[in-house]
Write a protein that binds this DNA or RNA. Structure first.
Lengths: 243, 243
DNA sequence: AGTTTTTTCTGACAGTGTCAGTTTTTACGA
DNA sequence: TCGTAAAAACTGACACTGTCAGAAAAAACT
C-alpha cells in the first residue's frame, strides 16, 4: 500500500526506485501499444517484456485501467506539446497562417502515432471508464488555449463577442459564458461555438484519415487537409466583423 | 462447408433454416454489442444467450471477424438508410436545407446507437481487419451519393467544376477525376474536395460528441451541431460561383 | 429405410485480467 | 551490525476469451 507520507517531503530511496520502476512499466506498455495497437495491450505481455511476473505490476498499478489511464494522460500531453510547439514554430512560408500550422501539427502527431491516437479518440477499451475530471482535461484545456490563440489572434474581444454565428439560444449562451475559463478571460459565446465547430472539422478529417476511412484518397490527404484548414480559417474569420 | 449450389436456384429447406439461424445469431450479437459495447462482444456470450454451444456458431461463421463484418455491414447500411430517409423527408421548416436534415439524421443515428457507431468508426477490434472492398464501401457510396445530392442540389456541373477551393495540384486533380463514379457522373474535383471537407466536419462533431469529448457542452450539442451544419452549407455554397 | 450431409456436442490449448497466500528482497532504526 | 518491518516479487488458481480436433446426434435427400 504505497501511501505518500508528505507531499513536500523529499523522496526517499524507495520512492525513487518505485518511480523509475513505474516509468519503465509505462514505457514498456506504450511500446506495446504502439507495436500492437491499444486493444492488444496485455499486462502479461508487458510483464514478460520486462522480465517480471504479472503480479509485480499489480504493486505499481491497481489494475489495467490505471495503467491505461497513465498512457492516455501521457499521450494527451504529448499531443498538446506537439500542437503547442507547432503553433510556436516560425513558419517557413509566412503566408501560411499559424492556425494551419497548429492543425497540421495535430494531424502529423496522429499520423505518426496512430495507435496512440486511437487510444485517445477511439472506442473506449473494454470496461474502461475514463476518469471524468483528470489530467486529460488539463491537456485538453492546453490545446484549447493554443487553438484559441492561433484562431482568434488579432481580434478584439468586442469583435469576437459580435461574431455572427446564427443567434444563440439564451440558455446556450448562458451555459457557454459559465464554462470554467482556461487561463485567459472567458471567450465570448459566439467565438466558443465557432471554435468548437472548427475543432470538430479538424478532428473529423484527422479521424477519418487515421482510422482508414479516406484511404481512397491515396497520398493526397495532406494537401486536402491543408486546403480544408485554410478554408476553415477563412470561413471563421469571415464570421467575425471587421473592427 | 456451405457451398452455394447455384446462385439462381430456389433456396432449399436447409438453406432457409441456415439463413434464419444465421439471422438469429446476428441479432443476438447485435443485441450484445448494443448492451455491452463492441469491445465486449464475445462469441461465447452470444452462444449462451441463444442456448447453444460455442462450436455451433463456428458452422455459421468461420471466426469472430466474420460475424463482426456482418454486424458492421448491417450497421453501415442502417446508417445509410437513416441518412437517406432523412434527406427524403419533407422538412417541417422549409427554411432548413435538406443537407442539414440529412446531417442531423447522421447525428441522430449515432446518438441513438453509440455502440454501433463505435463499431463503425471507433478503434478497429483486436486483430480485426476490415475487408477492403466489401459491402461497407457500398453503403459508404450510398451515403456519399445522398450527401452529394443535398449538398450540391441546384448547381450545374460547370459551376461545380469552377468551385473555388484553392488551386488543386494536378496529381490530386487527376486522382480525384479517376475515382470510381458512385452511380451518377463523376463529381468535378473541386467539388469532391469540398464534400470531403464537409464530411469530415460533420463526422468530427458527431465523433466528438458520441465519444464523450464534448460532454462539457451539456445538452446544447444539438443546437451547436445545427448551427455548424448550416454554416458549413453556407460556406460551401459560397465557394461555388453563381451561375 | 438407409445414407449422406449438416449440425451440435465434448474436450482441449493458449491466451487474458485479477484475487490469495507465500516467499524473497530491501531499506530503515535500534 | 543486526533484527524488523515493509515493500516487492513469486506461485497457484479462477473465470473468462477465441479457436482447433474429433466424436456424436440430428436432419434432410435418395
Amino acid at each position: 500500500m504505497p501511501a505518500v507520507e508528505h507531499p513536500t517531503a523529499p523522496p526517499t530511496l524507495r520512492q525513487r526506485r518505485r518511480a523509475v520502476a513505474t516509468q519503465e512499466i509505462v514505457e514498456a506498455a506504450e511500446r506495446h501499444v504502439v507495436e500492437h495497437g491499444p486493444a492488444a495491450l496485455s499486462l502479461r505481455a508487458v510483464a514478460r517484456s520486462l522480465g517480471m511476473s504479472v503480479q509485480a505490476l499489480y504493486h505499481y498499478f491497481p489494475n489495467r485501467d490505471a495503467l491505461v489511464t497513465v498512457l492516455i494522460t501521457q499521450a494527451y500531453d504529448d499531443l498538446a506539446d506537439a500542437v503547442q510547439s507547432a503553433a510556436d514554430t516560425v513558419p517557413d512560408d509566412p503566408a501560411v497562417p499559424r492556425f494551419v500550422i497548429a492543425a497540421e501539427g495535430y494531424r502529423s502527431w496522429a499520423i505518426a502515432r496512430p495507435e496512440l491516437f486511437q487510444l485517445l479518440y477511439g472506442t473506449p477499451l473494454r470496461d474502461y471508464a475514463a476518469p471524468s475530471e483528470g489530467p486529460t482535461t488539463r491537456a485538453m484545456r492546453r490545446m484549447s488555449a493554443v487553438f484559441r490563440r492561433v484562431l482568434f489572434d488579432g481580434f478584439t474581444e468586442a469583435q469576437l463577442a459580435a461574431a455572427d454565428t446564427r443567434t444563440l439560444s439564451s440558455p446556450l449562451r448562458a451555459h457557454l459564458e459559465a464554462l470554467p475559463p482556461d487561463g485567459a478571460p472567458a471567450l465570448p459565446a459566439p467565438a466558443t461555438v465557432l471554435m468548437l465547430s472548427g475543432w470538430g472539422h479538424m478532428h473529423g478529417l484527422v479521424v477519418l484519415e487515421v482510422f482508414g476511412h479516406t484511404s481512397f484518397m491515396g497520398d493526397h490527404q495532406a494537401e486536402i487537409f491543408h486546403m480544408a484548414m485554410r478554408d476553415l480559417l477563412t470561413d471563421i474569420h469571415r464570421r467575425i466583423p471587421a473592427r
